[in-house]
Design a protein around this nucleic acid. Structure first.
Lengths: 217, 217
DNA sequence: ATTAATTTTTAGACAAGACTAAAAATTAAT
DNA sequence: ATTAATTTTTAGTCTTGTCTAAAAATTAAT
């Protein structure tokens, strides 16, 4: 049985090896976990003892198959609860993360599977991230094309956003940028890589940073 | 902010002072918490430091107003989640307790209130226990008359059951005893205080112990 | 009213998870 | 190829919540 802390480490390692490299360094993990490298070393030993990560002193760590499976189950729970909070309890995008962060640690696979069924087996969470099924399988075609990569006059639909700060979500909310919203590229400015888009019957400018955090299809 | 352990102690003290006496002894609390009296003493100091209980060495403890409020909020969450599990996710009586035991520690009063609304402000949980409102107020008229106190030919409806073991709930399920089920007393046997009841088109005998754990109106 | 039995508290220890400061290993730089 | 800078680990400490064993207080019994 995993502690909450162990679960959080697994999730962090999974996320870092997805976005950076397979092997995750102690310092990077410490930064992600908002803790000290020495604490990370301690925890990596424990996770290695439980065969959840392979860990070599001074080399970094990597999830084992068992570790990956555990991580995916936690991610599954996190994203299902986010769907529940938004769809059933009318929470906003920006509010759900912290609550789901708590709910993801509830231990009952029966609860998870019943929740999945109750929500009609959603494929993505409210940010467009894929939800692993009960076997940990998921497809990630929702979040492969960034808004920043589009050409002039392209017309697309928003399918996801990068995990961001509450303030970022607040901004999206203000612009009424939601999953499923239709967007057209009206202009691209090379001097700062910002884009002018037509969305919800009006035009708005998105900075390069923002346009790289929005996924479309 | 309370730890999960502190919350569990508050809940236990609340329950014991309801069922036994206002002032709760260290040993009784230790038994309820399935821990040692010395651990209880340690925790009572902490809770007293936080003004959640009043505690006098060798005398026992009692919840303060603040402690009572906290306990009621935890109980509110526990019972709302039980309703959710039974009503929305089709769990059985006997399965919900352990999961609700985890869910009750999720910290977000907004979540609790939204859940309450989503469930249409239920007054009682699946066992007939009253659910405190967001101010901690509740009425306890559902669980004041025991089935064991009825007279011959009385016809009543089941409004609650005592908190019991999974095996007890299994037994109730087997007899199809649910909240709202109609019952008639067909016979009372003085030699062992058991009762013969007519329920769901058939007659069954309930032992004294069982009939004392079922509430009616 | 002493003694005996019970209850409760103290003292000291342990595991988990975190921290600081110092040491060791690795990587980068001249 | 040494030295310097960086990264990572070790050693020792702290807090929370638990435990055991022993001491102190309370209650019961003769």
């Amino acid at each position: 049985m995993l502690t909450q802390s162990e679960e959080n480490y697994l999730k962090a390692i999974f996320s870092l090896s997805e976005h950076y490299s397979e092997i995750v360094s102690t310092n990077l993990l410490a930064e992600k976990m908002k803790t000290k490298p020495s604490s990370v070393t301690d925890m990596l030993r424990k996770l290695a003892d439980k065969s959840l990560v392979s860990y070599l002193k001074y080399q970094g760590c990597e999830l084992t198959e068992k570790g990956k499976e555990s991580a995916l189950q936690i991610i599954r729970k996190h994203r299902l609860w986010e769907v529940f909070l938004v769809e059933k309890l009318n929470f906003g995008w920006e509010e759900v993360h912290d609550i789901a962060e708590q709910l993801e640690h509830i231990k009952s696979s029966k609860l998870t599977d019943r929740l999945d069924e109750f929500l009609h087996f959603p494929k993505v969470d409210p940010h467009g991230d894929p939800i692993p099924d009960c076997n940990g399988k998921y497809s990630n075609d929702q979040k492969n094309k960034k808004l920043s990569s589009l050409s002039l006059n392209d017309e697309v639909m928003i399918t996801g956003v990068e995990d961001g700060s509450a303030e970022f979500f607040q901004f999206l909310k203000h612009c009424k940028i939601e999953l499923g919203t239709k967007v057209k590229i009206v202009a691209k400015y090379n001097f700062d890589q910002s884009v002018l888009i037509f969305i919800n019957e009006q035009e708005i400018v998105l900075s390069e940073l923002v346009s790289q955090k929005i996924y479309v299809q």
